[in-house]
Structures are given as structure tokens and as C-alpha cells.
Nucleic acid binder design. Sequence first.
DNA 1: AGTCATCATCTAGCGATGATAGATTATATT
DNA 2: AATATAATCTATCATCGCTAGATGATGACT
Lengths: 195, 195
Amino acid sequence: MTVTDRKIRERAEREDRIVAAARAIAESEGWEAVTIRRLANEIEYSQPVLYSHFASRDAIVAAVAVEGFKELAAVLRAAAHAADGQRDALMKVATSYFAFALSRPALYDAMFILPTQLIFAEAETRAELRDGFEAITAVVSPFCMDVEIVTETFWAALHGLAELERSGRVRPGMHEKRIALVVQAIINAENAAPN
Amino acid sequence: MTVTDRKIRERAEREDRIVAAARAIAESEGWEAVTIRRLANEIEYSQPVLYSHFASRDAIVAAVAVEGFKELAAVLRAAAHAADGQRDALMKVATSYFAFALSRPALYDAMFILPTQLIFAEAETRAELRDGFEAITAVVSPFCMDVEIVTETFWAALHGLAELERSGRVRPGMHEKRIALVVQAIINAENAAPN
DNA sequence: AGTCATCATCTAGCGATGATAGATTATATT
DNA sequence: AATATAATCTATCATCGCTAGATGATGACT
């Protein structure tokens, strides 16, 4: 059995190397540079080996995306934990989310832009994909009644800000003001008169 | 000169047919089905002819995107015009933006997702790309001091909502509540105490 | 009218992609 | 040692964006 164990382990390691190589190339040269041949060279195997690990190129992108969702959740939780008070938590989560998106563009592309078969917002959604959402929920919940709606909207606003900034569709250098506006909106929602 | 005129006109018409074909195929089969060969078949010319109109495939996507920005601006202006009061204008613009994004997914992809060389948020930005932004500015301005920041943030929130909804990352069937939340946030911003 | 230059368009092909079929080598079992 | 199974490779497919060079049509000039 010990031989089989080693093989399983080596297979898993090779799979990790594929994902790591895909991510590294994507971050340094963009996703269009991530080709099956290039990855095969990188791990020093032939192309068909990759298809024994992943059904398609998209599946490799998806694997990188899952890594990204794990790391995003960790970043957001750390930001919330390091905060001083509920409002500061909201602000730190917002700025951390934004910084995450801008500092790892290829990773964020895999998570939100490139086509993958990942399933969200449903019962069978993987825990890794749910985790970041819950981290946002945690800091939003003190400020609202309908937690899920507000979490989704807060997330959407941050995602939109990041996207428009990344693609140069809004003026650079003003993102702090925009983030502050979003955070303030959540805080205001608490005591606002619903007229 | 009349012959030259006809040629110029025919060239322009052919260019329109290329863009129209690209858009139609993208809407019905997705952008990956929009190949140069396919477009060449569609307009009944050989592939190289396309390159006498557009420098690359991306340039064709960009041409469709520009059409999209024109139409989005028109939709938003119409929504604002049909509204009853400033708050209703805000709401109608928001819902129209959202409906636009969801009803023309391929067009919206060209405008915001696919790589193009279009320039935004700068001096040399084309008027068509600026127009929609100004339509949003118009309905937002009664509710805020820093109009540009609020416009950018409102737009980002709507874009984020549309993106997450389109890709199934938030629960379906709840978008009205999320839009209402964003609109209310703009209204609240007016009288909110900045504590 | 006939020659020539210019423009429009085509056929054919390049290098690269994602993916796969079938041969080949290594490993494990009897 | 012989055989079966698994792992891996070479070679290839169809398709992609894009381009070079040939071919045909059009217009200007002697």
C-alpha cells in the first residue's frame, strides 16, 4: 500500500504544481499566456498528462479561482479581526477587498471574469466559495436587518468599484473616496428613515 | 466623384454589416463563436477583407462595445425622462441599467468584460463612452455634493450588481431589493450626518 | 485606344491553440 | 518469467487569428 500511497501523493503534488504554474504565468504574463503546452513544459510532462488531472483548460482556471476564494476569505477575516470596532471592521474589509482585487489581477480574473463551471449561491456551492461571503456577512450584520441582501449589495458595490478601477473606467486616485461612500451607505442604512 | 462616393458608402455599409454580424452571433452563440472566418462567410467576403476594416478581432469587439455604450446612454436618458420626480428618476435609471446588462449579455460583455483598447475616464475618451456616464450624473446630482464621485460609485454598484447576478454569484430573484438598497443609499447620502 | 499604376480582393499558408487517438514504456500481479 | 494494467509519450486533428503574395478589376495618362 505504501507504494500506492506515494503515487497518490505524487499525483497530488503534480496537480498542485500545475495550478501553481498556471497562476504564476497568469500573474506575470496574463491568462492568454497560460497554454497547455506551456504548463506541460513547466511541470516537465507531456500535454496529455494535464488532461488526466483536469478536463479542460477552464478547469485549471477554476482551480486557481478556488485558491483565490480561499485567500480572499482569509484576507477579509484578518482585516475584520484587526479592526477597532464595527465601523472600522466594515472599512477595513472594504479596503482589503479592493486591495486584493487590484494587487492580484490575474487571480481576480480567474475568480470573477474568466468562464468557469464553478457554482455559486446554491446549495451545492463549495465551502471555499462561500467563505468570503460569510466574512463579509460578519462585518455587515451589525448594521442591517436583511443581512443577506445587504451582504450581496455591499459585495457587489466593492466588486464594481474594483472592476471599474482595474479597467480604467473611473478616474484613478479617487478610490478611497468611493470606498468611503459605500461604507458610509451601509452605516447609514441602519438608522435611515425609509421615506 | 460619384463613383468614389458610392465606393465609400459601400465600404461603410460593409463595415456596418461586419459589426452587426458580430453582434448577432455573439448574442445568439456567445463571443467565442465570433471568428474571423465566420464573419467573412456572413458578409460573403474573404477573411483578409475584414482586416482592411479592423486591425484585429478585438477592434471588432470594440466597435460592438461602442454601439452598446450609445444604446445604454439612450436607455438611461429615456428612463430619466420618463420618471416622475428626482427619486423616481434615480430608481428608473438604476433598474434600466440593470435590465440593459441582463437583457443583452453579449453586448455588455463587449462593453465591460472582453479586452478592448477603448479609453475611458481620460481627456481623449470618445463622446459615446462618456454619454452614459453623464446620463447617470444627471439623475444623481440632486442628491450629492461631489457629483463625480457619487456617479462613479453609483455606476460601480449597478455594474457590480449586474455582474454578480449575470454570473449567478448572488441569489436570483432578489435583485429588486438590492437595487432599492443602492438607490436608497444615494438618497440617504444627502442628509446623512457624517459621524 | 492602349499602357500602366493603383486599388480591391482572393487563395494559400504560417504558427499557435485546445484536445485526443493510439503506440510505447514502466510497473505490478500472477 | 509472463502477463495484465497503468502511466506516459509521440503524433496528429481541427480550428484559431492573422498575413504574404498572387490575381483580378478599375481608373489615369500618353
